[in-house]
Design a protein around this nucleic acid. Structure first.
Lengths: 201, 201
DNA sequence: CCCGATATTGTGGTCATCCGCACTGTGGAA
DNA sequence: TTCCACAGTGCGGATGACCACAATATCGGG
């Protein structure tokens, strides 16, 4: 997994260097990209940290870049920088999920604070997504029959009822049930319910 | 429970009348308030629908009114209207949870669409909050001892272990456990776990 | 053709759950 | 003082969950 980085996307080298220096003095690792196209080309799904995105750039704008990232299911928080902001633009980006929207000239410390909050937010999201991925992975290891039985167990049905419904014997249900618990890493139906309740698929 | 209303808060009577008419033609019930103070005085926790809030008003501004509503745990979505919007203001209100932020002059149909989406959003939130309130209410009906036993049941412990831990007999645990299921309206520990997993207290 | 994964079933037994019935004790409210 | 909610306890039985041991059967590869 790649390290958490603040990705600075701006076509002005002076700004890139200034921001990088600013963040480094606060112990925030940064990487710079000279254009939206370059960033999108280098972007990978396992990137973590946050993105500082200038809106007015040559060729592809920050807004277009943001839309492209949304389509790729980017998970990193995006902080917009703009010189001539207008309200509808700010509103629409925030409603689309941007983390913040700052107008130049901005306060150096304020930007760094926002970046740090964004990176903390991403770290939290990442942690919960990883546990979620573990659960999903374990679910994938279940055979079709086991998943079927699991659903009925979660519905609170007795083994006897499940057996009737699937036209199999109680003993077979017990075997599947046991394998489900084993593969999912739980030891009771209660734990299973708690594992699957917050964030179903 | 009160009906869903679009609450229009603006000190300009012409605007209030225009918005009311606009919404009525699209079958959205509206109620007007001539100032932030008046609205806050009349506001009740069981209001539902949405709030259309002008920012620049005599005496208390829309922003101050919004902050007051946040402190009262208002649940209705707030749509800001402003003549001379500035970006930081829009950003900060949206980050504080405002539903939208529109600049005058705005498109009539666009505003109505936003109001309708806001009211739909509130209806959904209200529905989930009501089921949550039901659960919380039932939890409140449990005696302290019953809550204690419930926690241990949810931790997946056997009645025997619970009995040891609370220094009581297994039979007593069974009685409490049974009462918990009865009061919470479930028939198994699995249902209980599912009821309490999404949104703990 | 043999192997592994999947699905299935039975026997017999242990442990846990759940429930009705009967009973004790305490502390606060009417 | 009487009534009631709350807490605690024992007995015995019915039912469900779980497990070790033991098997059969299908299917897709290697």
């Amino acid at each position: 997994m790649s390290q958490a980085l603040a990705h600075i996307v701006d076509d002005d080298e002076a700004i890139r260097d200034a921001l990088t220096w600013l963040l480094r003095t606060r112990n925030v690792a940064a990487r710079t990209w000279a254009s939206a196209e370059e960033f999108l080309a280098g972007w990978q799904a396992d990137f973590h940290g946050c993105i500082v995105l200038d809106i007015r750039m040559k060729e592809m704008s920050g807004l277009e870049c943001f839309d492209a990232l949304l389509e790729r299911n980017n998970s990193m928080p995006v902080i917009f920088l703009t010189g001539h902001g207008d309200v509808p633009m700010a509103v629409s980006t925030l409603k689309k999920g941007a983390f913040d929207f700052l107008e130049k000239p901005f306060d150096d410390n304020a930007l760094v604070d926002v970046v740090i909050r964004a990176m903390e937010s991403d770290a939290r999201k990442q942690a919960s997504q990883e546990t979620q991925a573990t659960v999903t992975g374990r679910l994938a290891q279940l055979t079709p029959r086991e998943q079927e039985v699991m659903q009925l167990v979660l519905a609170g049905k007795f083994n006897k009822v499940i057996a009737d419904q699937l036209n199999i014997s109680m003993r077979t249900v017990e075997v599947h049930r046991s394998r489900v618990f084993e593969k999912m890493g739980v030891r009771s139906a209660v734990e299973l319910a708690q594992l699957l309740a917050p964030g179903r698929d």
